[in-house]
Nucleic acid binder design. Structure first.
Lengths: 143, 143
DNA sequence: TTACATTAATTGTATATACATATATTTATT
DNA sequence: AATAAATATATGTATATACAATTAATGTAA
């Protein structure tokens, strides 16, 4: 077996580093909101809905901005409806679609969550100064 | 610490960018090995075991280098044993422990997987030159 | 209008994962 | 030696997710 690949390609090093940081950060943020009984996907959906400023979103509108845009969005929204954090009604003009909006209760919870998440986020990124953060973001965007 | 609500704090931008890239990369690499019926966690475990160069690993040895080091490592190894890609025996000196080694079949599969993954990894990082990759890695490590 | 294709959302199912708890073995204490 | 504590791994259970298939509504073309 050819095991003499003694040096790791840069692209692998980069890929694994990003994946590791990504999962670490995911875990950190998840734990920051877990005490409110909210998962990261649910949090994500709530933020997307708030971003619509009252304008209803279809399931696809939400899906396309989710971390993992897939068929599970239905069930994520289900959970939020059960918790009364969002409302879902059938779209009258196209009854295949649904109209999803965030409730006042959802907005209230989101302010609490934002606080907790912001705190956690600045905590886990504190090893870089603003200049470095900007450079890092720029490189990641270019990637 | 207090952030102005109207503009997105740098730390949030950075966090979300990393999380997004991390999941994107995870999906890319996963899809590159999926056709061989291997998940990313399983691939990860196989690589860790190969890295031991024949020296058996305990479950904890494997766990501590996994992306998500948790109780599921037992079941990940289970899968690999079923596929005959690794061997698991009870450790004679401490029968609480298990000794895990990668099989020749596992090594063979790994060379195929490495190829596919290397290709995918250089593909998804091609927008940066080597210099930029190094800078990006350095910033991520500092983070 | 009927038939066919397309679209939006949901559901079924298998697998994955998180979290708590259990089992087995070894180590430490009395 | 008997009992308790610590350690290594495994299991039960609930939830999450991926993937495929299904249902319902709309659009299109003969």
């Amino acid at each position: 077996m050819k095991e003499n690949k003694m040096h790791i390609p840069l692209s692998r090093k980069l890929t694994t580093t990003i994946i590791k940081k990504g999962t670490d950060f995911t875990d950190e943020v998840s734990s920051a909101i877990k005490e409110q009984g909210i998962t990261l996907q649910q949090f994500n959906a709530l933020r997307i809905l708030r971003g619509r400023n009252g304008k209803p979103a279809s399931l696809q509108d939400v899906s396309k901005d989710m971390i993992h845009a897939n068929s599970n969005t239905t069930r994520v929204i289900d959970k939020l409806v059960t918790k009364k954090l969002v409302k879902r009604v059938q779209c009258p003009s196209d009854r295949r679609q649904i109209e999803i909006t965030i409730t006042q209760e959802g907005l209230n919870l989101l302010t609490i969550l934002d606080h907790q998440v912001d705190e956690k986020e600045s905590e886990i990124t504190q090893n870089l100064n603003d200049e470095e953060k900007k450079r890092l973001i720029a490189l990641l965007m270019k990637l």
